[in-house]
Design a protein around this nucleic acid. Sequence first.
DNA 1: ATCGCTGCAAAAGTTTTGCAGTCGC
DNA 2: GCGACTGCAAAACTTTTGCAGCGAT
Lengths: 172, 172
Amino acid sequence: LNHLNQAARMTQHTSAPTSRAPDLHRAITDRLRSLGLRATPQRVLVLAALGDAHGHLRADEIMRWVAERYPTVNLATIYRTLDTLLAAGLVTQTDLGAGAASFELTGETRHHHLVCERCGAVTEMDDALVASLRERLLCDAGFRVSTTHLALFGICRACQEREHGLLGAAQE
Amino acid sequence: LNHLNQAARMTQHTSAPTSRAPDLHRAITDRLRSLGLRATPQRVLVLAALGDAHGHLRADEIMRWVAERYPTVNLATIYRTLDTLLAAGLVTQTDLGAGAASFELTGETRHHHLVCERCGAVTEMDDALVASLRERLLCDAGFRVSTTHLALFGICRACQEREHGLLGAAQE
DNA sequence: ATCGCTGCAAAAGTTTTGCAGTCGC
DNA sequence: GCGACTGCAAAACTTTTGCAGCGAT
């Protein structure tokens, strides 16, 4: 599924369209074709953007990334492409509370995100903890969870310590 | 906190403004005042709507409910009221994947929702399962989860059986 | 009487859609 | 060449905001 991720990571420092990463371009193209989808430059670049980011991106961020190397691209196409990729299972959608949806390459390692409401830091969380919850729901309620990604909001350790420090020093 | 819920449920069949439920109106009013908020008819009705629904409502649904007994209400007020009630902790916000946010009365029993992607059924899930996840995160990662509500999407038991039935009978 | 709250209208922001033309296969 | 896909523009939709005036305390 995702040697795309690895190939993409290899080109993180590259900014040229596809000159330095013909292998990535090729891998993405093959993947799309194997799913019966046309490998248009727009689609390839959307996948490349998500691979390069190695994390979640919003539609407008993808738009900017792609537009840098394919200036005539249109935002509507980004959205339509993301719909297609979602349906194909290549991409995962999430709401990280930014007002707009975020998208991520579907990796083989399921993981989730912890979003700090104070400092905005986003850290990854392993799926292990959630896996037991999923199994429990399937056994107890017969509910088969398909949600692949969870975003939990709260206060990260750093911000908690910062807060405690303030409270301890100058309690007002 | 929420004899509001109980009082609200008592008036589920009532449609008159507040004539048949002076106790509910009074309870909500007192609650708002005790928090230093003005008990305007708009605010009281928003809370009454959420209590009557005994579940999650979107802003437009609240709007419709309130407008039925207070026609001059404005949608902007609904949003501003919900902001206020969120800040006061009387209300909880969730994304149930409907494109718009959903809101719910903050009850003393924390619970979550399982949303079936096939039939749209929404069932409640006890917080017990999630509680352990929360504790784990606090211990392991030092992350204090503040997300009070979780929406998990998937396939409910009924739809799974329905699907299996079809597959078993006429596998096409 | 004060000032928080509301109604109205307009704006901001994200996402969708119709249509004509283009380009991958 | 065919049909899927794209660009463009406009619309649909949720949510926010400025401002003048009303009304709860």
